[in-house]
Amino acid sequence: MAAMPAAAAAPEAVGVAPMPEISAPIALLLDVGSGRVLYARDAHRRFVPASITKIMTSYVAFDLISKGKLRLDQRIPIRPETYRAWRRVGSTMFLPSDAQPTVAELIEGIVTVSANDACVVLAEGATGSVPAFTGLMNAAAADLGMRDSHFNTPNGWMDQGQTYVTAADLATLSGALMTRFPDLYRRFYGHSQMTWNGITQPNHNPLYGFTQGADGVKTGFTNEAGYGFVGSAERNGRRLVMVLGGYDRPKDRTGQSRDFIEWGFGAWNAQQLFGKGAQVGVAEVQGGAERSVQLVAPRQLTVTAPAGRKVSYTLAVRYKGPLKAPITKGETVASLLVRVPGEPVHVLPLVAGAAVPKGGALARLRNGALSTVGL
């Protein structure tokens, strides 16, 4: 997933409908399919995320699950010291001292009711300690190109500013969460409430029940951070992600976030370039059982323009070639460069359409012979 380009705010684009009032000091609206920034205000300014941190917590958990290092049905007992430290601290699942919740239950608590206790229990159960887990969080941030973010805690609890993010980095993270782990994202995100151990709690996402297609992502609040929100909605294959940070009042966050994302869908249109799974190109492979691999779109890829306007563009595929085996199916191995006159180049991910294992001696001999004759 390429990092979000540093683009200007969208209202300068000719022909765009006036946007609603957004009083948050930090604001960003991104069309994920095209990578186009529809609006930005201080998108690269560092701020304290509070519970928005839990997006990265779920990302790391999903990654461990996808690699077989963590199981959804795995039970994790709560340590006595963890129970004492996090009992009824902020938002919780109200985990009892003898609890042994499953990984799936902990993730549901983290994502749906912002459970601080569940974050620490999951971190300790998955990696042995909170520092080990936050190490994975920071490694993931580096891998995603989140250059202005750092995580010191899995739940975003106040830590004198040691945990910080930017709106641009959060948009990158959210897009990667949805693209790389679509099944897990659909399973755990988008729930309006959660019942566990006889206790029902609501999700405070202001889009749920009001915005068509809303399915994420995470609210956050502490006295240190104010009221923040990363929100997402998908309509007809088109996904928008917004980041709002630093509100003083929750009602402003609620009303303005709903208006903001509706403006994104209404004032802008998306022209499809490639549907999800479509072949975009072919890349050469070195040292593999096959000499090439198809490059496919991991999601719908689009170009975005003000409503009612067609866009001219050029496309190019870029990768560091030849690719080296082994290659995993679905692995991001190339980029689609979309050039629209007057805009920064939009860089969209392309993934391997099939796995390419390392080739044996015969495969290497065959490939070498074919290369010698120019085939």
Rank of each mutant, 00 (worst) to 15 (best):
D143K: 11
L144C: 03
L144R: 01
L144G: 00
G145V: 08
M146S: 00
M146G: 00
R147D: 06
R147S: 10
D148A: 14
D148L: 15
D148N: 13
S149L: 10
S149H: 03
S149M: 10
H150V: 14
H150Y: 12
H150F: 10
F151Y: 15
F151Q: 05
N152W: 06
N152Q: 11
N152S: 15
T153S: 15
T153E: 00
T153I: 07
P154E: 10
P154F: 12
P154T: 13
P154N: 06
N155H: 12
N155A: 05
N155D: 15
N155F: 03
G156K: 07
G156T: 02
G156Y: 03
G156R: 06
W157K: 05
W157S: 10
W157D: 00
W157P: 03
M158Y: 09
M158G: 05
M158K: 10
M158Q: 08
M158F: 12
D159E: 02
D159W: 07
D159G: 07
D159F: 09
Q160C: 00
Q160V: 11
Q160N: 12
T163M: 05
T163G: 07
T163C: 11
Y164A: 05
Y164M: 02
Y164V: 14
Y164N: 00
Y164S: 00
Y164L: 01
V165N: 01
T166V: 09
T166P: 06
T166G: 02
T166F: 03
T166I: 15
A167P: 00
A167L: 07
A168L: 03
A168D: 06
A168P: 02
D169L: 14
D169G: 07
D169M: 13
L170G: 03
A171F: 11
A171H: 12
T172L: 06
L173V: 13
L173Y: 08
L173W: 08
S174V: 05
G175C: 01
A176N: 00
L177Q: 11
M178W: 10
M178Q: 11
M178P: 01
M178R: 10
M178Y: 07
T179R: 15
T179Q: 15
T179G: 05
T179D: 12
F181D: 13
F181A: 05
P182A: 08
D183H: 07
D183I: 03
D183W: 04
L184Q: 07
L184P: 03
L184W: 06
L184D: 11
L184A: 01
Y185H: 14
Y185V: 09
R187H: 04
R187N: 02
R187V: 03
R187W: 14
R187M: 09
F188S: 06
F188I: 12
F188Q: 12
F188M: 13
F188D: 11
Y189G: 04
Y189F: 15
G190I: 00
G190Y: 07
G190C: 03
H191K: 10
H191A: 08
S192A: 13
S192Y: 02
S192F: 04
S192I: 02
Q193M: 03
Q193D: 14
Q193E: 14
